[in-house]
């Protein structure tokens, strides 16, 4: 009799703890969903505010789904003459594209050399390069500016694309990040693969081109996405190097559209929405793949 009572008490307490853990899980799921809404909320807000009629952008209580859609702000965006949206778009695209191409190329070459080839001074050079991870561009910006000024590159796109093409840095990340990422990948290549190709008489350049590069494509793409995004988003370098509006990229130029919030104009909201849109579209299309790329880079980098 007692044993039965004990047993039922035990099952009861077990079911209690099961219920408690289920409740905590339910509760935390709820909290997380609310949190997720807070993460996305600001983007929904800017979109719906940007398409509201004139003078109603900042109406309270906020209309998350506007009942009247008007594209006044977008129209005005094309009319303002402070900055030209298409020019800024083109500048951003050109700079980010060139820097990405340069970084991916030079990082792959160096990464392959550091992972698969033997040469004198390999470790010292690698560690020296790695030390630049601790040198933020912001801390050497004054001499960097003077250097670019000496080269006559201030207020030209070269001030940013030249270091990018040489793989020195992309705005926002040290260049050696790419070298490190690619090296980590090439280290996973089986040595036999390279040796076999060597015995067949291929030179190292050919081995890199025929075997290394095709296999490295996913890692290169991951690096490319990260470099493109950080360059597209960067504010600091374009701010320092560009003076003319004709050279400006989106993050710098967009701030020139700021107007007092009570003026009723919300041109900048349209501008920011358009600047975010490409990233949003790319993200929605390749969500899983992009997340995986970042994980791959984050874990190895």
């Amino acid at each position: 009799m007692t044993s039965v009572a004990g047993e039922s008490a035990a099952t009861q307490s077990q079911s209690w703890s099961a219920l408690a853990s289920r409740l905590t899980k339910l509760f935390s799921t709820l909290v997380l969903i609310i949190g997720a809404i807070a993460m996305i909320g600001p983007f929904v807000w800017i979109f719906s505010s940007s398409v509201r009629p004139y003078n109603e952008a900042f109406i309270l209580p906020p209309q998350w789904i506007p009942d009247k859609w008007e594209f006044h702000n977008y129209q005005r965006l094309l009319e303002v003459n402070v900055v030209s949206m298409p020019v800024m778009f083109k500048n951003s695209l050109w700079i980010a594209g060139l820097v990405t191409a340069g970084m991916v190329m030079t990082s792959s070459l160096s990464g392959f050399a550091f992972a698969c080839l033997r040469f004198r001074g390999k470790n010292i050079i690698f560690w020296l390069l790695l030390s630049s991870l601790m040198v933020p561009i912001q801390a050497t910006i004054i001499p960097l500016f003077l250097q670019m000024r000496g080269l006559g590159l201030v207020d030209t796109h070269w001030a940013i694309t030249l270091p990018g093409l040489l793989g020195a840095f992309a705005p926002g990340i040290a260049g050696v990040f790419g070298v490190f990422l690619m090296r980590q990948f090439f280290l996973t290549l089986p040595k036999d693969l390279i040796d076999a190709a060597r015995i067949d008489g291929a030179g190292y350049g050919l081995v890199f081109w025929r075997i290394g590069l095709p296999l490295a494509r996913p890692t290169m793409a991951a690096l490319g996405i990260i470099v493109f995004a950080t360059t597209w988003n960067d504010y600091f370098l374009p701010l320092v190097f560009f003076n003319s509006t004709s050279q400006m990229t989106l993050p710098v130029g967009i701030l020139l559209l700021r107007e007092p919030m009570n003026s009723g104009n919300a041109t900048i909201l349209a501008g920011v929405t358009l600047s975010i849109l490409p990233v949003l579209i790319v993200f929605l299309l390749g969500q899983r793949w992009i997340v995986d790329s970042f994980i791959r880079a984050g874990v190895k980098g």
Binding site: S132, T140, P143, Q147, A168, G205
Partner: peptide, 24 residues
Amino acid sequence: EAFTAYIFILPTVLGFLIFVLGPM
């Protein structure tokens, strides 16, 4: 092998010297 390697790392090292170490 070493020669190939030096060519491969040349752009990165050059970029590092000019735009990272130099300014430092």
